[in-house]
Design a protein around this nucleic acid. Sequence first.
DNA 1: TGTATACATTTTGTATACAAATTCAGACGC
DNA 2: GCGTCTGAATTTGTATACAAAATGTATACA
Lengths: 234, 234
Amino acid sequence: MSGNQKEICLEDLKLRILRMDLEPGAMLDEASLASHYGLSRTPLREILQRLAGAGFISTRENRGAKVASMDVATMRVFFQTAPMVYANISRLAAENHSSRQLGDLQTAQLEFAKSTERGDAPAAALANHRFHAIIGEMAHNPYLVAALNRLLIDHTRLSQTFYRPADPHEEQLVVRASEQHDALISAIEAREGALATDLTLQHWDLSRDRIERFVRPDPLPVDVISMKEHRGAV
Amino acid sequence: MSGNQKEICLEDLKLRILRMDLEPGAMLDEASLASHYGLSRTPLREILQRLAGAGFISTRENRGAKVASMDVATMRVFFQTAPMVYANISRLAAENHSSRQLGDLQTAQLEFAKSTERGDAPAAALANHRFHAIIGEMAHNPYLVAALNRLLIDHTRLSQTFYRPADPHEEQLVVRASEQHDALISAIEAREGALATDLTLQHWDLSRDRIERFVRPDPLPVDVISMKEHRGAV
DNA sequence: TGTATACATTTTGTATACAAATTCAGACGC
DNA sequence: GCGTCTGAATTTGTATACAAAATGTATACA
């Protein structure tokens, strides 16, 4: 029972970081985390080292651990890097996957679809994360997967930062994303690397557009502004 | 003094793995490592977690740690992935580096040149590793650097596996590699991303050819083979 | 009011002791 | 001979106590 308590703690911390229940840059207190998960500080500190190695947190000597931050510079690099890595991973997944992994992928996509249908955005974000992480596993490329998993951490967090449940347009985009997932599964299953690459780039464009629309929304109507200006001048 | 003993241990273990002083797949004994570095097992185990996170070793629950293995499947993936990552890292380094880092790069290259001149292959391999790791830092891209550093671990180990100091052709190749390093430094300094990409791919071709020549050596003279066949048939 | 310094508190890092798991070796039956 | 069962020996994992470092706070002084 307590044998996998460490694993539970590790996975739960990953989840809390991805959900931004633990915010980017937040300090982590060893003592409280240890007691929360029913561990002593020794195994908890080992977990922190592993989380740091996977890019979830950063640690500084004598200065404690904090959740990986997400500043503007990081975002810029993220947008620059993601499409290349995603596309290559998908191509490799199509070429190298084993059929057993395909079932896991379909399960993850089912979970994504269900989460979106019931409007559970955090669950959808996590299912989406899992979907793309599985594609990473299917690529059988430990080098690129290291890059992918770090990208996915920030992607999942970004998606949730820039999510507006009220926006009706948003729902449309999610439906399209789900359709793209299905198409990508088919391409991987058929081992069509080129198609998988293409679909992944389309999927990326959709995701990027959604975030871009948030950062740069439709400008306010000009005449309203001029009216206000006019009144101010009186 | 004992404050950075942990750091010393971490760096030394990395070096020993890169030099294959600790062979791929070798089991690591916590107790002996701890006593060797004058640490207790607690901090040593934290170091092992960090090494695992960086891809130097792999750990299994209750089963100890072992140096990352290098099987044929891994090598295939390595050759498939390296050029893309290297090329992109070099381009980003040219675009994003700070001038302070350029000095470190030149220092590393000087160390590489000196090591090759005195025929110190292990030192040259490590200096070469450091040279390319610094280019990784200059790229300011934490995602791709994660992939790069894993590639470099295997690249450095592969290079030493497939090294024949006796071969006179080998020396020529090393001289060319050193020249390519110099050219790459200039391209990065001039912030010429396209040129840096190009030079890096040439550098990669050289490295790959050297290893390939080892794996698939010049075929034996045809007549010798046929003679042997003939004799066997008698 | 602002700064510096000494001291108390909190947090991080390490060593040691002990618990749990795995491995090894010899005995036993087939 | 070959597999496998059992218990010792080894190795890994965890908790606790203590040491070291950083942080916070109050006081003295300019």
